Computed example of a mutant assay.
Amino acid sequence: MKRLLLAFALWLPAIAMAGSLQPLTAAEVPALLQPPARGERIIALWALDCAYCEPNLEALAALQRAHPHEIELLTVTTDSIEQREAIEARLRSMQMAGYPARAYAEASPEQINFLLDPDWGGETPRVLVIRADGSRLGISGALTPEQLQKLR
């Protein structure tokens, strides 16, 4: 019995990590854009082929860790959920696997881009900040220290 419990305890973290990446459809976008009850929701949009995405994600994760009760961070890759293995491997290598993660699951990624932010042209990295008061901020490109300060 003890061996079984030990095996289960060792296996549990693997189960928790598996399947952390969820598909994002157009129908689910409005729920992501709802203002949080308090603080801010930061949606970090990135792509596998994006050179500036990793430093942005690292900076956003550090910001969230500094303000864990005020900032909700989630990542959304503009790559297809069909690339699940590559996306999950990249999230692990960037130490972002612990954050909620979504990947596009529509034949028309442009539709999801538009629904997320009608002012966005699809370039990555892109950061969307949704505040509890309903205000929003969108920033494209590599984040500067000044831009990071505006997020808080």
Results as ranks from 00 to 15, higher is better:
Asn56Lys: 07
Ile87Gly: 01
Met96Gln: 11
Met17Gly: 06
Ala142Asn: 08
Val29Met: 03
Arg152Asn: 13
Ala59Ile: 07
Ala26Pro: 05
Glu85Phe: 09
Leu48Gly: 09
Asp79Ala: 13
Ala142Trp: 08
Glu40Trp: 12
Ser135Gly: 06
Leu45His: 01
Thr77Ser: 15
Glu85Cys: 01
Asn113Ser: 11
Ala37Lys: 15
Ala16Asp: 02
Pro30Asp: 02
Leu48Val: 13
Pro13Ala: 03
Leu148Trp: 01
Val76Ser: 00
Leu116Asn: 04
Ala62Cys: 03
Ile81Lys: 06
Gln111Glu: 07
Leu10Ser: 02
Thr78Ile: 15
Leu63Pro: 04
Ser140Arg: 12
Ala44Met: 01
Glu146Val: 13
Pro23Cys: 10
Tyr99Ile: 06
Leu73His: 03
Glu146His: 13
Arg92Glu: 10
Asp119Thr: 15
Asn113Gln: 13
Val76Glu: 00
Gln111Ser: 08
Gly39Pro: 01
Glu40Phe: 03
Ala27Trp: 05
Arg38Gln: 14
Met17Gln: 04
Asn113Ala: 09
Val129His: 01
Cys50Met: 12
His67Cys: 09
Tyr99Pro: 05
Asp117Thr: 08
Ala89Thr: 14
Ala101Met: 06
Cys50Ala: 12
Trp46Ile: 11
Glu85Lys: 10
Leu10Ala: 11
Phe8Asp: 00
Phe114Gly: 07
Gln34Tyr: 01
Ala18Gly: 05
Val29Pro: 00
